[in-house]
Simulated assay, not measured.
Amino acid sequence: MIEESRHISVVIERPAADVYAFAREPENLVSWAAGLATGVRRDGDDLLTDSPMGEVRVRFAPDNPFGVLDHDVTLPDGTVVNNPLRVLTHPDGAEVLFTVRRLGASDADFDRDCAMVLADLERLRGLLA
């Protein structure tokens, strides 16, 4: 069975470099990534966050000039979920693109996850407007 992915994106009327810099700052996660973080602590190269699922470990791709904010999230049960997240140059500024993977979720859970990601990206847009 091939797992479905859905690409969720928003356009932000700011330069892609500005959006990338803001989004990759761990201290800013709590203001826009409600699905991930309600508190952030550093642990070496990783972040420990208090999420709706319990404490999770997050490791972002290294700082780069390509807008790649991919990150692995290690859930409390040890499952590692890779989350592709990109900040792309767009004619109107930047497009932030997050790929949500079904990973065996029911239709309702997958739709809920996609809606939560969209809400997070809308919050990010609101902060940078």
Rank of each mutant, 00 (worst) to 15 (best):
1 M>F: 13
2 I>Y: 07
2 I>C: 07
2 I>N: 10
3 E>V: 12
3 E>N: 11
3 E>T: 14
3 E>C: 12
3 E>L: 11
6 R>T: 07
7 H>Q: 15
8 I>K: 02
8 I>L: 04
8 I>E: 00
9 S>L: 04
11 V>D: 10
12 I>Q: 02
13 E>C: 12
13 E>R: 09
14 R>L: 09
14 R>C: 02
17 A>K: 03
18 D>N: 08
18 D>P: 11
19 V>I: 05
20 Y>G: 11
20 Y>T: 06
21 A>C: 06
22 F>N: 01
22 F>Y: 12
22 F>E: 10
23 A>N: 06
24 R>G: 05
24 R>K: 10
26 P>W: 02
27 E>Y: 10
27 E>K: 06
29 L>H: 09
31 S>F: 14
33 A>W: 00
33 A>T: 12
34 A>P: 14
35 G>R: 13
36 L>S: 11
36 L>G: 14
38 T>A: 15
39 G>Y: 08
39 G>Q: 12
40 V>T: 14
40 V>L: 04
41 R>G: 11
42 R>A: 15
43 D>W: 07
43 D>I: 14
44 G>Y: 01
44 G>M: 04
45 D>P: 14
45 D>K: 14
46 D>C: 15
47 L>K: 11
48 L>T: 12
50 D>G: 09
51 S>Y: 02
51 S>K: 08
53 M>W: 07
53 M>K: 09
53 M>T: 10
54 G>Y: 00
54 G>N: 10
55 E>P: 10
55 E>K: 12
55 E>H: 09
56 V>P: 07
56 V>S: 08
58 V>K: 01
59 R>D: 03
59 R>L: 10
59 R>K: 13
60 F>L: 14
60 F>C: 11
65 P>N: 12
66 F>T: 12
67 G>C: 10
71 H>Q: 10
72 D>V: 15
73 V>D: 04
74 T>R: 03
76 P>M: 04
76 P>E: 02
78 G>E: 08
79 T>V: 09
79 T>H: 07
79 T>C: 08
79 T>S: 09
81 V>L: 06
81 V>I: 15
84 P>G: 13
84 P>D: 02
84 P>I: 10
85 L>W: 00
86 R>V: 04
86 R>P: 01
86 R>L: 06
88 L>H: 04
90 H>G: 14
91 P>E: 05
92 D>H: 09
92 D>N: 14
92 D>E: 14
93 G>C: 13
93 G>L: 01
94 A>Y: 06
94 A>V: 06
94 A>I: 08
95 E>N: 03
95 E>H: 01
95 E>Y: 01
96 V>D: 07
97 L>Q: 13
97 L>D: 10
97 L>G: 12
98 F>C: 08
99 T>A: 09
104 G>E: 00
105 A>R: 05
105 A>C: 05
106 S>F: 01
106 S>M: 05
106 S>H: 01
108 A>D: 08
108 A>W: 01
109 D>Y: 00
109 D>E: 09
110 F>W: 02
111 D>V: 12
111 D>P: 10
113 D>T: 15
113 D>Y: 07
114 C>Y: 00
116 M>G: 15
116 M>A: 13
116 M>I: 11
119 A>M: 02
121 L>F: 00
121 L>R: 05
121 L>S: 06
123 R>P: 08
124 L>M: 03
125 R>G: 13
126 G>T: 08
126 G>R: 08
127 L>R: 00
128 L>P: 05
